[in-house]
Write a protein that binds this DNA or RNA. Sequence first.
DNA 1: TTCCAGGGATATA
DNA 2: TATATCCATGGA
Length: 277
Amino acid sequence: MKCYELQNNKIIIKDKNKFNCEHTLLCGQIFRFKTTDSGYLCFSKNKRAIINNKDNGYEIITKDIPYFINFFDLDRDYDIINESLECHEVLRDAINFGRGIRIIKNDTFEMIISFIISASNNIPRIKKIIELLCLGAGKNMGEYYAFPTLEELKLKPLEFFESLHAGYRAKYLFQTVQYLTEDLLQNMKSMSTENAKKELLKLMGVGDKVADCILLFGLSKMNVFPVDTWIEKVYKTQFHGTLKSRKEMRIYFVSLFSELSGYAQQYLFYYKRTGKV
DNA sequence: TTCCAGGGATATA
DNA sequence: TATATCCATGGA
């Protein structure tokens, strides 16, 4: 059963338990969104979705409806996923806390740049740096700025990335932009998780964790489990684990959740970071 | 002042 | 392969 309907060229969501916009935007997978009086604005590439609260759901207004149906993964039945994950006790609480989260399907290039910026950084600052990036290099769309294309960023010198207050990540961004090609970005979409990760790890500023985030949010690979400082806390406090390296934790979690690893990770991350447990 | 944030690169063994 | 150290920035 679909969680949405199309009415008057709008996407109508009638149940926030099926798609909760607040949880989906605040759970750390999207850095380009704003809260408004009536809901949210959400951006991807050069596109925008206006999300208004409506009854117990939302109306989503956008010029590209198919893009955002796919972006918010609205054609997937999350009840089946949740049911499967709830056999793990810790996940039960995390799912109840973040019910309605959907794993977004964002642009590969936008995710590569965004998560290079995310390394050893905090979410409010990541958002500011990305906003400056769009302002300084993205196309003016009238009421907002697009995320810059690879072609646009290839024209920018190292000094431009330094001007974003990106710190030591500026040189990573510059080198990765110079290295990347449209062909490589396109080819990664059809690669296996393992092969795509090998390619991502060749990029300057992309290590194990950042690669997993790009695979999850930018290439829709669900058999990955990014381990960051928050997941490390979850592992120690909720799972009472004894493994020491993040690599070991990643292998442990992927073996536990398999093809549902990405969903489990996002529930746990949001639960720990926002739920203050 | 020190610690921390969706870590990674590099040198060293 | 595994570990130690350095890396910018800004808020708490």
